[in-house]
Write a protein that binds this DNA or RNA. Structure first.
Lengths: 140, 140
DNA sequence: CGTCATGTACTATCTGAAGTTACATGAGAC
DNA sequence: GTCTCATGTAACTTCAGATAGTACATGACG
């Protein structure tokens, strides 16, 4: 959604974003709430209102967004019991915790190294490629 | 469940395993089915039947078990669209795919390095620690 | 002051995992 | 042989969590 806003100039309404994401304006607002609270976007009410990016794209990483959205758990599975009395389960949990923690750390560090500015650059590169391809198809 | 079976000698019924895992025998059978198909356990019907480990514990890794269970997706989130027309989404997907793939590779390799024999050793170490603690508590 | 926008509580829908029931199949005891 | 005990599996049923949608309050601008 932030990338779509970056393309627009001026505020973008939840309505427009919802159309772009094929969902409901309320869903958009709910998601944006976290980003607003963390200062990445600003919302403006009334005529000509909508959502505006409030910080330089190079200063927003995917990790930032992940955190603003409440750092939801990344993995599809967790320990059966968090503090089991069963010693078997304790042994298993210890190994799994360590492996999952390391994987999570790697993933988050990767997200922290990607700014929206980079994504925007990649997007424009793709745009150029696509339009070139279009021209070639036109000739044929 | 395999660790619990390793403690027992002789076949263990789904009923007993279900009690230990606080679940239903049918759920146990469903899970064990994958392990049986991959040759990690054997099932025996009739009197005195149940589940038996069919391979040395040092030859079974957590990764093996993960695969036998059908390699369910590890992450709690995926791309909104797998092959989006939207170039913004393509750019985002490319970055996320790469990060998630690397995290998955790390995690699976960690699981591949842990055998049930190691877990069993850890379990027995914990058992020893616990019984020592019990004795001390007895004295006091 | 009417219209357009966000903010949010409340409700509804959807989906996948887990649990359950029911019954078929096969192995051993007697 | 047949009775009992075990697995094998196909339905079916819950249940919880995510997502979507409705309703209405609040605030800004023309």
């Amino acid at each position: 959604m932030l990338m779509h806003m970056a393309q627009h100039k001026g505020p973008v309404t939840s309505e427009v974003l919802a159309k772009a994401m094929d969902t409901n304006p309320v869903v958009v607002r709910r998601i944006m709430a976290g980003l607003r609270d963390d200062g990445y976007v600003r919302s403006e009410k009334g005529h000509g209102g909508g959502w505006v990016i409030a910080r330089d794209l190079s200063k927003i990483t995917l990790r930032d967004i992940y955190d603003a959205l409440g750092s939801p758990s990344l993995f599809a599975m967790g320990n059966r019991t968090e503090a089991p009395g069963c010693l078997v389960e304790q042994a298993v949990n210890a190994v799994l915790d360590s492996a999952f923690d390391d994987a999570e750390a790697l993933l988050l560090s990767r997200l922290g190294n990607v700014s929206l500015a980079m994504l925007s650059a990649d997007f424009h590169a793709r745009l150029k490629r696509r339009s070139r391809r279009m021209e070639i198809e036109d000739v044929h």
